[in-house]
Amino acid sequence: MKRKDWKSTGTAVYSIRYHFVWSTKYRRPVLVPPVDASLKEALLALAAERGYEVLALEAMPDHVHVVLSAPPKEAPAAIAKVLKGATARTLFTRHPELRKRLRGHLWNPSYYVGTAGEVSAETIRRYIEAQKEEEEE
C-alpha cells in the first residue's frame, strides 16, 4: 500500500474502501434519466458533506453501486442508512412520480457492503462498469 493512499483523522490513519450496493423497492427500473443523474448528484454532494470520498459510482436501472472511503469511526451500517435515507428524500422531492410508483419507499430495506481492501480504485471502477455493460446486453 502506498502512503499517498492513506487518509487521516485526528486519531487515526486509514485506508478503508467500502463497496455498497442497494436496489430499488420491488427492483423497479426507475433509476433512468433524469432520475439517475439526480441520484448521482445527491450522492456526491452528500458524500462531500459527510467527509466520504467517492471512488466509483454507477446507477443501474434498478440498483446502485457506490465505492467510497470513509473514516473508521463511521460504521458501514450508518453510512448505508445515511446514503439511502438522504437520497430517497432528495429523489422523492425532485421526482414526485417515484413516490406513487414505488408506494412511498424508494429503496429495498437491505443492502450489500464489502470491503475492497487494497484493490485499486481503477480495478473497482472497471468491475462496476462491466456490471453495467452486462446488464445492458
Rank of each mutant, 00 (worst) to 15 (best):
Y26P: 00
P72M: 05
R94T: 10
K40C: 13
H65F: 06
R28F: 10
P76E: 08
T90L: 05
S23D: 07
W107P: 01
D5S: 04
E129K: 13
R103V: 10
L98V: 05
R103L: 12
L98S: 02
L68V: 07
E133V: 12
A47Y: 05
V32E: 09
E136Y: 04
P34M: 07
P29V: 03
P96A: 10
R17S: 08
Y52S: 06
D5W: 10
A75R: 15
G114E: 03
A121P: 01
D62I: 00
K7L: 13
Y112N: 09
L102M: 09
V66F: 04
L31S: 01
T11W: 06
A45K: 06
K7G: 02
E136G: 00
S110E: 04
A48R: 12
Y14V: 03
R94V: 07
L43R: 00
R27A: 12
E97D: 15
H19N: 06
P71I: 14
L46D: 05
V82H: 09
E135L: 07
G117E: 04
R3Q: 04
K84D: 03
W107S: 01
L57N: 07
A78N: 14
L55A: 04
R99H: 08
H65Y: 06
A80R: 06
L102K: 02
T123H: 02
T93D: 11
R28H: 10
S8R: 11
H63K: 03
E134D: 13
P71R: 14
W22H: 08
